[in-house]
Computed example of a mutant assay.
Amino acid sequence: MHAQIILFDGFDPLDVVAPYEVLTAGGTASGGAVTVELVSAEGPREVVSGTGGLALRATGALAPDRPGLIVIPGASGRVGDPADAPGDGAGTPGPTGADESIPVLLGRTLNTRLPALLKEAMDHPEVVVAGVCGGSLVLAMAGLLAGRRATTHHMGLDTLDATGVHAVRARVVDDGDLVTGAGVTSGLDLALYLLEREVGPRIAHAVEELFAHERRGTVWRAEGPEPAPF
């Protein structure tokens, strides 16, 4: 399984690094069955995160037709209304490009090639798309998740609902070729679950033990009887 983890301006570093480390360790534990790379919609470039100017380098361009896994992170920035951010509140950076709100950073991705590439990926039968935290909101705001089940950070669940998504309050939601994680640290749980699902539970358990991290919660799947209201 080849995993492409997307970088965009203002990304949240933990949303990227947690899945990257888990999947890379899964590649080691599986004898190379998993490979991982950092990509961007624009191709190889240095991409600045929304956390203290930390930058990571995308080594390639996102290939939406490459079978495997595509992971999109959320953004890191101020929590607040886009109108309160530096700049004009419509996606234009402020004077320093810093201290911007998460809604602005996520919304700015809609003005790049990323939505079109993500649509190609979601239309491909051999690609699984995974969103960590606000990554689900990027997909939803691009109009790609209507009618699907997904989760995101608890502060963004209303936004999912508003875009026609069936928001699920779960740590990880498996909706077939779409797998999403909730808050920032859920990137660990999401990546471990994907290792279990795509490579096998023994590999996932070995990585979980290596990282001294135990996954939390039950992965939501559209299986079994509908629960009665409490």
Rank of each mutant, 00 (worst) to 15 (best):
L157K: 14
E100S: 02
L195V: 07
A41W: 03
D174R: 14
V138H: 04
V129Q: 08
L38C: 13
A85F: 04
G224S: 10
P93F: 02
G183H: 09
I70E: 00
R171G: 08
L114C: 03
L144R: 10
E21T: 06
L195Q: 07
L178T: 12
A146W: 03
G74H: 05
G77M: 03
T218A: 15
L178Y: 06
F8C: 02
R57M: 08
V132I: 14
G32T: 08
M122L: 15
L195N: 07
V219C: 11
F8K: 02
D161P: 00
V138P: 07
G107C: 12
I102R: 12
A61V: 06
L210R: 12
A212I: 15
V172C: 09
M155D: 11
H2C: 00
G97C: 04
G224M: 09
P201L: 05
L137T: 14
P86N: 00
M122H: 02
S30G: 05
S186Y: 05
R66S: 07
A83G: 02
A130F: 03
R171T: 09
G181S: 14
L195S: 10
M155K: 06
E209D: 10
L194Q: 12
H124I: 03
F8P: 01
G50E: 02
P67G: 01
V165Y: 10
L14Y: 08
D15T: 01
V128A: 03
